[in-house]
């Protein structure tokens, strides 16, 4: 079993650090938010912030805006609704079985199929939208990551190099970062 364990560890290991930048670890939310604001003002737009829970202060500092996943969900819902009705209507027209002279296309019972199909496709699109926009699944870390970010610490990663990295490091320290690591 040891060989299997080693194989899994190898598969999950992060790729060699080819990235360049600065990672700051913060405890206080307002420190992290102030750092994000200053870094953005200094022109760093590609920064990533990691945290165990979402923080409104950081959202505002990042000026993130709302998720667009709702539009993907809406599109899925419309497709599901039309697809559900289309399936019912196609099925009765392709093999007509007239019972008691009643209309083949009887919309009221088809509402149930259309409604459930709408919810099914909206839900599936919502999932796919969330995964696609959130860049998931991500089985290997794409940047420096620390297990403390799922506990109680906030991480700010700024891709940069050279003198820029030194300035970023100073900004982070100035705002009370507990730890700053430069990946050169």
């Amino acid at each position: 079993m040891r060989w299997l364990e080693r194989l899994i560890e190898k598969l999950l290991a992060s790729s060699p650090p080819t990235y360049k930048g600065v990672l700051g670890v913060f405890y206080y939310v307002d420190d992290a938010a102030a750092t994000v604001r200053d870094l953005r003002q200094a022109g760093h737009t590609g920064l990533s912030v990691y945290s165990p829970v979402p923080h409104h202060e950081i959202e505002v500092a990042l000026d993130q805006g709302l998720s667009q996943v709702g539009w993907i969900t809406f599109t899925g819902g419309v497709l599901g609704l039309t697809g559900g009705f289309a399936l019912c209507i196609y099925s009765v027209l392709s093999y007509p079985l007239v019972v008691g002279g009643k209309e083949l296309v009887s919309l009221p019972p088809f509402v149930v199929i259309g409604y459930e199909s709408m919810i099914l496709l909206a839900g599936l699109s919502n999932l796919l939208g969330m995964l696609a926009l959130g860049r998931l699944p991500q089985l290997k870390a794409r940047g420096p990551y620390d297990a403390r970010f799922t506990e109680d610490r906030i991480g700010i990663w700024v891709p940069c190099a050279g003198e820029e990295a030194a300035r970023v490091r100073e900004t982070m320290r100035g705002h009370g970062a507990e730890e700053v690591k430069v990946h050169a």
């Binding site: 990533s48 912030v49 990691y50 945290s51 165990p52 829970v53 979402p54 950081i58 959202e59 990042l62 993130q64 709302l66 998720s67 996943v69 939208g129 969330m130 926009l133 959130g134 860049r135 998931l136 970010f149 799922t150």
Partner: peptide, 8 residues
């Protein structure tokens, strides 16, 4: 736990 992931 990136802010982008939390947002979506």
């Amino acid at each position: 736990g990136s802010q982008n992931q939390w947002k979506h």
